[in-house]
Design a protein around this nucleic acid. Sequence first.
DNA 1: GGAACCGGGCTCTGCCATGGGT
DNA 2: ACCCATGGCAGAGCCCGGTTCC
Length: 383
Amino acid sequence: WGYLTILAPRNLLYMRSRFLFGSRCWMTRFSPEILFKSVSFRFFGVKSDNEDSEPLKNRLLNNLLTMGVDVDMAKKRQPGVFNRTGINEQDLKMFLLSKGAGQEVIASIISRYPRALTRTTENLSKRWDLWRTIMTSDLEIVDILERSPESFFRSNNNVNLENNIKFLYSVGLTRKCLCRLLNNAPRTFSNSLDLNKQMVEFLQEVCLSLGHSHPIDFVRKIILKNPFILIQSTKRIKANIMFLQSTFNLNNEELLVLICGPGAEILDLSNACAKRNYTNIKEKLCSLGCTEQEVQKFVLSYLDVLFLGEKKFNDKIDCLIEEKISISQIIENPRILDSSISTLKSRIKELVDAGYNLSTSNISLLSWSQKRYKTKLKMLNMR
DNA sequence: GGAACCGGGCTCTGCCATGGGT
DNA sequence: ACCCATGGCAGAGCCCGGTTCC
């Protein structure tokens, strides 16, 4: 999508060349059949089956190319859309323009989710209004569409959307929370009502089975902590809960606190991912002299570490070890792994230059906010 | 007044599979 | 045989600062 972000003049150039190149391509690569038919029609007077629809399709494709749509990509994604008749790309274009979307955004949306072309203006309008009951401006919605066109256009079942909104309110979520869901996990709203209900019911069952008496509060808490939960499968969430339970030998109470607290975010790790990353962490730390208990305690105190893939985790540890920071310092200050490798490296260098002895001093400042860290560094350099 | 503790803010799409409908 | 709607999947961090503690 780099070409969509380049400056306007180049963009114009791009569109023009796309248009010329694209139409040539279309004749030679995609439609020998159409070419044959139109030739035979012209020269031999043979009547084509699609004599009316083919020119229409040509016009559609040319119009899309002129709009800057990557037709090749669109066709590859949803070929069916281009076999249909009666698609009016102007409707979608005008609709989106009226909502404040720019040409590039519109082209990008169609390229990535061509089925958008099959929606009627009435349907889109109704859907948009429903989203607007949650969002305060059209531009916020345009922004979501740009990021995730599929979420908005994948379904045209507006009754389902309406029911989803009602359902989410009934779970006790505020409009502000729905706004966050729509922003971060727009797919939630195009899930079937039933699927969303399944997840909520599943979470309530987990809550009850762990001996908590307020399942509604519990579910609300999880969703607030992890707005992505409703776009995961219950299978995935179940696997992660079981992973937490079996890895850390927690009692019901502890597990419950973890799930709707610090552990909420790691629930959407993909199936084998939590296990894989945990295994890697364990191997790496044990190879550096940690015991299994220490590893367990470390991960439990900083579950976000499970998000780190093998390479990233190992690289971070290595870059700390290289600077004579001991493994026990690391596991006692897990939050330093919050920082990116480049932050770690630049701070380590600055601190060493300032005469700070990392192996004997506190290392938690490696993950302080920029502001606090700079203040501290200034003080060190003044000594 | 500086450090520790801790929670929170950003943040999630684009692809494939499947079953149903015509 | 085709398209559509929908479910499910893989992939994977970094930063900030309020409040409390000493």
